[in-house]
């Protein structure tokens, strides 16, 4: 086996190991966080601070009966939860977590796929997520599931536009689709005071990106596809046991990847001013990954905070916000950034 292949496998294994931890940890953060916000205690019985609650939940999921409705389309009903994991388990490949390092005389970039297409590949893979929701909704043979699937597809299509345009505005001054170039572009500082992160010059694009990210991950206040008060549980109403858990995992891992993307595009990615990123390769990698995870955690906590603070939108409000506010705003932002780039300011 060649060294490059081994290095790629090792980097993939590292990401997988981290991403698979996201769901149990985030479920715990979500439950304890919601309890804190609502002045309750939350799950605090299993292990220290209730940390092992998620482990108990996982065991419970495995032991529950797996039910497929009699009139369901069995093939699609089984396939949908598996498909839910595909974008979650593939999109991380273009997110860099450090500079190029030298391992045993080989140059290794700290990104799984340093492809020229970069962030385009991420958006393309993420856009496949909608099929699992649609399949789940259609195959369940249930009105609520179906309504959830129709809502999900309309919502994802609408907000993908604004999200993509916001990303494009970030890429324009950089002149590359590669996320490592984006990180390199953000090194340095404004007036020697503030880090040269995109969140400052592209604040409007940042707002559009974050709002669209909430819609893309079906999180409150945009969780219309699974609005409990109207649709029972939307597209996954008819799912139980581990199949339901797969949807759950896909959702949280999607959140984690989008958080990493947001951190890379707007908060300087793996780079933190003041860190030298020198020394043995594993130390450089640990620094880069640590900084990236820390920044992504900020976004993840923000996701939780918003969920327990805002009520749900109505569907027409959601569509109006997407098409009449976010899309024009992202286009204006794109034009402004283009003008500033041509003028040489950015």
């Amino acid at each position: 086996m060649s060294f490059d292949l081994l290095a790629t496998l090792a980097k993939t294994a590292l990401w997988m190991a981290l991403l698979l931890q996201v769901t149990p940890i985030m479920v715990w953060v979500e439950r304890r966080g919601s309890a804190m916000i609502q002045d309750r205690l939350g799950p605090n019985r299993v292990g220290p601070f209730g940390l092992f609650q998620s482990l108990a939940d996982a065991v419970k999921f495995l032991c529950k009966e797996d039910i497929t409705p009699v009139e369901a389309d069995k093939f699609m009903h089984g396939l949908a939860p598996v498909l839910a994991l595909i974008p979650a388990l593939t999109t991380f490949v273009v997110i860099p977590f450090g500079p190029d390092v030298t391992v045993l005389g080989h140059r290794v970039p700290l990104v799984v796929a340093g492809a020229e297409t970069g962030v385009l590949l991420l958006l393309a893979l993420a856009s496949l997520g909608v099929y699992s929701l649609v399949m789940a909704g259609y195959s369940s043979n249930n009105k609520y599931s179906m309504l959830g699937a129709v809502r999900a597809s309309a919502q994802l299509i609408s907000y993908e536009l604004a999200l993509t345009l916001a990303v494009l505005a970030v890429l324009m001054p950089v002149g590359s689709f590669e996320l490592n170039e984006v990180v390199r572009y953000q090194q340095g500082s404004f007036f020697g005071l503030l880090p040269r992160w995109n969140v400052i010059p592209q604040f409007i694009g940042f707002l559009v990106f974050v709002v669209a990210a909430f819609a893309e991950t079906n999180r409150l206040p945009f969780d219309l596809p699974e609005a409990e008060s109207e649709l029972v549980a939307g597209y996954h109403t008819e799912y139980s046991s581990m199949k339901f858990a797969l949807f759950f995992m896909g959702e949280y891992m999607g959140m984690a990847t989008l958080s990493c993307l947001a951190a890379t595009l707007y908060l300087g990615g793996w780079h933190l001013p003041g860190l030298s990123y020198s020394g043995p390769w594993w130390w450089v990698a640990a620094q880069g990954m640590g900084v990236l995870v820390a920044k992504a955690t900020l976004f993840l906590f923000f996701f939780v905070w918003v969920r327990w603070t805002f009520p749900r939108f109505r569907f027409d409000q959601l569509m109006r916000l997407g098409w009449k506010v976010l899309l024009p705003l992202s286009i204006l932002n794109l034009i402004a950034v283009a003008a500033l780039t041509v003028a040489g300011v950015l």
Binding site: T117, L120, L121, L123, A124, L125, S127, L128, V130, I157, E160
Partner: peptide, 11 residues
């Protein structure tokens, strides 16, 4: 390839 997936399958 990326554009194919993004435009056709994604939208």
């Amino acid at each position: 390839a990326a554009i194919q997936v993004l435009v056709y399958t994604g939208a």
